[in-house]
């Protein structure tokens, strides 16, 4: 996630360097370079994930899920520190301008134009993911492999290819998340992925592991309850709220709200 956000920063500065005009789109605070950087960062992050999978996880796949998890945590620390090594721990800015929220006449709420853009991008990503999982051959194979890896293999499905695609898509989505957070907050830090880790786990458990739609709904619930909680308790405890919801969920319905298996 941080990696994606930072790659976007790199691409952004590269593109600006290439002289692509940075005139902001209409009311938005950024322009064409940001949009191009978004796609470049997504692709590069996906590529990085595939490379890590080929070098590292492929060889550890047989050893069991926990060893894989340890390797992944180790990798996360490495990536985070590579970012820190190059850019330092202090926040990096995409755009320095401050945007003022405007009132939407009919709904009576105040919202920044950038935020509308973020909502649209998220909606597009959700629709895209849905289309991919339901309509494409690879998406269906991904669901099949998640149901039963062994059967997928004996049906002739190239499970290694499926795993590579899964990594690529997961990494690209994480990168997109990181960039969007960066657009909303205006800055990115190497440990932003870590900050989000707990809420993300909580959202996935809430929705039921293995259920992408549950995860989306879980994400909404966790995100909203975190924000609402700041009305009652200190903002510092936002991540704790996610955790508490998750613990309650584990006790009453460990398979998640929409879990089926």
């Amino acid at each position: 996630m941080s990696l994606g956000a930072f790659l976007a920063l790199v691409s952004l500065s590269l593109l600006r360097g290439l002289g692509i005009p940075d005139s902001p789109f209409g009311p938005l605070s950024f322009g064409l370079p940001m949009v191009l950087a978004f796609f470049i960062a997504l692709s590069l992050t996906a590529l990085a994930a595939i490379i890590i999978d080929r070098i590292l996880y492929l060889r550890l796949r047989r050893t069991g899920p926990i060893i894989l998890l340890i390797a992944a945590v180790g990798m996360a620390f490495c990536l985070r520190n590579i970012i820190q090594f190059i850019w330092g721990p202090q926040p990096q800015y995409y755009i320095k301008a401050i945007q003022i929220a405007r009132k939407i006449p009919l709904l009576g709420i105040r919202i920044k134009p950038d935020e509308i853009f973020i909502i649209i991008v998220v909606a597009l990503l959700v629709i895209g993911l849905h289309f991919f999982l339901q309509k494409t051959k690879m998406g269906k194979a991904m669901r099949a492999a998640s149901d039963n890896m062994e059967l997928a293999r004996v049906s002739g499905i190239d499970t290694e290819k499926v795993i590579m695609w899964t990594w690529a898509i997961a990494a690209a989505l994480a990168a997109a998340g990181g960039i969007l957070v960066g657009i909303e907050d205006k800055f990115i830090t190497p440990d932003m992925g870590w900050q989000m880790l707990l809420p993300i786990f909580a959202a996935v458990i809430l929705g039921g592991i293995g259920n992408p739609y549950g995860a989306m709904a879980g994400g909404m619930i966790i995100g909203l309850s975190g924000e609402i909680s700041t009305a009652f308790i200190s903002t510092a405890y936002k991540p704790a709220v996610a955790f508490i919801i998750m613990v309650i969920m584990l006790i009453i319905k460990p398979r998640g709200l929409f879990g089926t298996r």
Binding site: L56, L60, A71, M75, F77, C78, N81, F85
Partner: peptide, 26 residues
Amino acid sequence: LSGTQAGALRVIVVGVLLELTLLLRP
């Protein structure tokens, strides 16, 4: 190197050691 860079580099060294151990001598 600056202090934070050195710190980051050292974490990377430890992380790489971990991955190598998992791969070569689990």
